[in-house]
């Protein structure tokens, strides 16, 4: 995809109004015609980008794909927070992803890039240190609340063999942090006193939002790319150090008390995740990003310190 031919090409971004979507749209608008969709409006899109407020599961989305005929779809519109109820989240994530692939196949899209997450592997005490893409997706075992994300990932990777003609790229980045990211993890790390599990301090792997956006750009631009890839940034340090670098204090709580406390606070909407997600602050879930680097030449640019101090 040369720069000259690139200008005429169209990239459709779902979930464009989110933090990562906005960064990505700005980057891609330099070289592509960008069509962004989101359920929420984005009033100040970059020049050369068109943004529509549509629901992926509605006919208006199909119409948009039919009319704009994008060559690439970047699917960012997955709900990862727990502010909507489980059934609703399930329908948005599974239904939305299904719509993306169905329309992509029908209207001649060449490549679909899905932004999954390394959380699908699950945080388990027996996890190998740096998991490869072939590792089983165990997240639902200890954290059933996120099984829809595992299912979405599995559905997307199944497209690889079901539709060999479509270039499907599933990215599983580690924890994304940065000044504009609003995620469960960033909400957790921005609490005044951050509850942790007493006696446990797992390695926590991070990538800066700008580095992640660069990785997605690579996934859009690298010729003949298809497959499942972990995406890693500057590295991993203990969770307590992440919290310290975020300028917050830890509040270690014995595990038998932490579960009920988290559940109570979660129901009062002052804690960002339910007790089922506690394994992610107790056990490690670190992945190897080697395959993606080899396939695309991606290199992170923000150092570990820059990454960890970027969202104070």
């Amino acid at each position: 995809m040369g720069a000259a031919a690139g200008r005429a090409r169209t990239v459709l971004i779902t979930g464009v109004a989110g933090g990562k979507g906005r960064l990505l749209a700005r980057r891609l608008a330099e070289r592509f015609r960008v069509v962004g969709v989101d359920r929420l409006p984005w009033r100040t899109p970059p020049e050369g980008a068109e943004v529509q407020a549509v629901d992926l599961r509605k006919r208006s989305f199909e119409q948009l794909v039919r009319r704009r005929r994008p060559q690439v779809v970047v699917h960012l519109a997955l709900v990862r927070h727990f502010q909507v109820d489980e059934a609703e989240r399930h329908h948005i994530n599974i239904g939305g992803t299904r719509a993306v692939f169905e329309h992509a196949l029908r209207y001649g899209v060449e490549r679909v890039v899905v932004l999954s997450s390394s959380t699908v592997y699950g945080a388990l005490p027996d996890n190998g240190a740096y998991l490869g893409e072939e590792a089983p997706l165990n997240a639902a075992l200890l954290s059933p609340e996120i099984r829809d994300l595992v299912q979405t990932d599995t559905y997307s990777t199944a497209q690889l063999w079901q539709h060999p003609g479509l270039s499907t790229v599933v990215l599983r980045p580690v924890n994304v942090v940065g000044p504009t990211v609003h995620s469960v993890i960033s909400r957790y790390l921005r609490m005044r006193r951050v509850p942790t599990v007493l006696g446990f301090d797992p390695l926590f792997q991070v990538i800066h939002e700008e580095d992640l956006v660069e990785a997605v750009v690579r996934a859009v631009e690298t010729p003949a790319l298809r497959g499942v890839y972990n995406v890693t940034g500057a590295g991993a340090v203990p969770l307590s150090l992440v919290i310290q670098e975020a300028g917050r204090a830890t509040l270690p709580v014995p595990e038998p008390l932490l579960g009920p406390l988290v559940d109570r606070l979660f129901r009062l909407r002052v804690f960002p995740f339910p007790a089922g997600a506690i394994p992610f602050i107790k056990f490690p879930c670190t992945v190897s990003g080697r395959a993606f680097k080899a396939a695309t030449g991606f290199r992170f640019e923000r150092s570990l310190r820059q990454t960890l101090t970027s969202f104070r």
Binding site: Y130, L203, L241, S303, L304
Partner: peptide
């Protein structure tokens, strides 16, 4: 070791 004195495995 990284800038915080940890190796990749903690």
């Amino acid at each position: 070791l990284n800038e915080y004195g940890y190796d990749p495995w903690g």
